[in-house]
Simulated assay, not measured.
Amino acid sequence: MTSESFFTLSERIDEVFFFIGAAVLLIEVLEAIFKGNLRKKTLMEMLASASTQIPFLLVEIFVMTFAYGVLYMVSANFVSWQIPTTWVTVIVALVLVDLTYYWEHRIAHQVRLLWTQHAVHHSSRDYSIITSIRFGPFESLWALIMHIPLVLIGFAPDVVFGCSLIVLGYQTWLHTEVIGKLGPLEWVLNTPSHHRVHHGADAKYLDKNYGGILIIWDRMFGSFQVEEERPRYGLTTDFDSQNPIKVWFSELPALMKDLRNAKSGQEVWMRLFGRPGWKP
């Protein structure tokens, strides 16, 4: 196996998750029609979620393509050792990428500057498969930074990015309420039930279940919460807009206002890198 062939395989796996997600979306829509719940607001919310792909893809094309290229160049010219690409090393890389995703995700909830991007994913009051593609424009940049150490220790960039694609693709089917709890799988894997908790704005559900594929990281690092009552989705602050521009940049106006009103360099630092909601 080569790193290039593995990346091609990861793209095929991502396509499989896409089709699974499309099937679940069809079930969601049919269920809503059957129950009479397919309201105009629901459709507008879905369109707002889908619209986030516009700035996200523009950043991918004009910013991240260059950033990925730089990382490939660094790997080729400055990392003189490389871990061979075999099934064993790919599985190891997948586990490490999943662990990296856990911390990338957890930190994005705890650092306000990063939260301005990730909050876009959480701002919908509805919860459906379409939520899985609701991204902040610059989320990929933070993800790239977090994966740099894996390239520096010798994993080929194609292997790292391929594993990352699988971790993200896996999560597509988690964004639904039509799938209940999955028995023993709940102990090891991230499931729709676990991820519904993650999107909950209820106090008991806040900042829980960060995992990508495996839920064991949350169990190990003390951030696990089982789903009990149905979550109240969205942000703890009042956000209920379907205006695409407001959805894309929902957290930035408040951050800009706080930075303008900051009275010291320390306050500027804490406004940017402290927890969301921090006040002097």
Results as ranks from 00 to 15, higher is better:
Thr172Leu: 04
His147Glu: 13
Trp217Met: 06
Val92His: 08
Tyr102Gln: 09
Gln53Val: 04
Gly183Met: 02
Ser128Gln: 14
Ile27Pro: 01
Ile166Gly: 00
Phe221Asn: 06
Asp207Leu: 01
Leu152Pro: 11
Val159Gln: 02
Thr237Ile: 13
Asp218Ala: 00
Lys181Arg: 15
Val70His: 13
Val79Ile: 05
Thr176Asn: 07
Gln242Leu: 01
Phe161Trp: 14
Met146Phe: 15
Ile91Arg: 08
Ile20Arg: 10
Thr131Ser: 04
Phe7Ile: 06
Glu28Ala: 08
Ile61Asp: 09
His109Gln: 11
Pro192Gln: 04
Ala22Ile: 05
Ala119Lys: 08
Gln242His: 15
Ser250Cys: 07
Ile129Pro: 13
Gln110Lys: 15
Met220Thr: 02
Asp218Cys: 05
Val79Arg: 04
Leu47Thr: 00
Thr172Ser: 11
Leu38Ala: 10
Ser49Pro: 05
Tyr102Trp: 15
Leu252Ser: 02
Ala48Gly: 02
Arg39Cys: 06
Ser132Ala: 13
Arg230His: 12
Ala203Gln: 08
Leu206Pro: 00
Met1Pro: 09
Leu152Lys: 10
Asn261Trp: 08
Val95Glu: 12
Ser75Gln: 13
Thr116Arg: 06
Ile129Glu: 14
Leu25Gly: 10
Tyr127Trp: 06
Thr100Gly: 15
Phe7Ala: 04
Leu165Ala: 04
Ile91Asp: 08
Pro149Ile: 05
Ala23Asn: 03
Glu139His: 03
Trp187Leu: 01
Lys181Ile: 13
Phe6Glu: 09
Ala67Gln: 01
Glu177Val: 13
Glu31Gln: 10
